[in-house]
Design a protein around this nucleic acid. Structure first.
Lengths: 207, 207
DNA sequence: TGTACATCAGTGAACGCGCGTTCACTGATGTAC
DNA sequence: TGTACATCAGTGAACGCGCGTTCACTGATGTAC
């Protein structure tokens, strides 16, 4: 293999390195801090180099988004495998979602900012859909085991996603007065349980 | 008064005009499309003019955010006054929130992007707090009339806010497959009812 | 095994652009006497 | 009512900057024979 000291002309895996550098940059400077030039500086590469691997700025950003959703999927599937109780799995998935958002704030924001039009970047879109698919699976399992009534799993998953996403987004935006991550997670638990209870009862509007 | 045709040297109410132009610009070009220079072009004023009224770019943007929250407060208080049933008020407030977000997409996004640090712009912060106050009031009314159990109204309001905010944010980000605004609102209604039901039952976790 | 050559993945300089902000200025307004 | 003057709210030109992207190029790699 190559000597690590002398940098070879060919990078080896510049594409991945650029995505990684971009992610780090976003995490450090916030969602708006992303520029192609700063990414190339971090990857120690000329400013024209990314164009070998990405069509343009947005194309690289879309790859960052894709990675974000892949990571989210991974975290959620790990968590889902950690228990056999469907209701508990539901709760843990919610907690994992919020945790992911709080741990990788800026990355999370970029994922949902859709500044690169998601329709033009099918890989990013697909990764997002896969993450949502995890959630639908968890809901379906709750339904099969009778913890939730057997209504449209997608709609139920969408409701749960909305709640947990709202918590994540508001927490990131400092709209809550919570001081620690643990407090946010405890709150998320209470909220998730309330929703689960309501979904369980069925969907009669309260008078 | 002045002849409308010949533009007077003094504008009259440039501050308000700039905020309005900025809002229009954001609505047209998206949350990232805001630039001071484009705002001055739209207000037909020199590019140095805003500095008479705003410290810098972020200061103007904060005024836009403030206006956004004032508008949201207004909409919610109007809606709250439209019925005497506390539960119905709860639902209508949720619908109003989502509607506001869908009608003024980009403006809504800017409000929660906190790109001007909210701590440095107390007026914006205060307007946001006032909007949340509306919601707390609605929840408290539900509790007083026995529709909801009398727990911490702020926490309950936070849960409701999270749900409705998540719906708004995901809908804006095209994460739902809904095609019309009416579909989103119907979905929001179902979600709100489920949550209300769960909150009503109390907060025992489901087994 | 050796060589010619196509292809790939980088470099480095340059482009044009729009941005936020500052500066010395000037026109309009309001007030004191 | 008239005038001097301070203050306010604009103008217009200029600054320096970092950005995304293009271009002709060159070094490294892989393959055919």
């Amino acid at each position: 293999m190559k000597d690590k000291k002398e940098r070879p002309y060919h990078h080896g895996n510049l594409r991945a390195a650029l995505v990684e550098a971009a992610t780090g940059l976003i995490e450090e400077r916030g969602p708006g801090g992303f520029t192609l030039r700063e990414v190339t500086r971090r990857a120690r590469v000329s400013q024209a180099a990314p164009y070998r691997h990405f069509r343009d700025r947005d194309d690289l950003l879309a790859a960052v988004v894709e990675q974000g959703f892949l990571g989210l999927s991974k975290v959620m599937s790990e968590v889902a495998a950690s228990t056999h109780s469907p209701a508990e799995r539901f709760r843990r998935c919610g907690a994992a979602y919020v945790t992911y958002a709080l741990e990788r704030t800026a990355h999370f924001q970029v994922m949902f900012r859709m500044e690169p039009d998601p329709e033009k970047h099918p890989a990013a879109r697909a990764a997002a859909d896969a993450a949502f698919g995890q959630l639908v699976g968890v809901v379906a399992a709750c339904q099969e085991s009778g913890v939730l009534p057997g209504r449209n799993a997608r709609v139920v998953a969408l409701i749960a996603w909305s709640l947990v996403h709202g918590i994540a987004h508001l927490a990131i935006g400092k709209q809550f007065q919570f001081k620690t991550r643990a407090e946010v997670l405890r709150f998320a638990g209470v909220a998730t349980d309330a929703l689960l209870e309501g979904l369980r009862v069925g969907n009669r509007p309260a008078k």
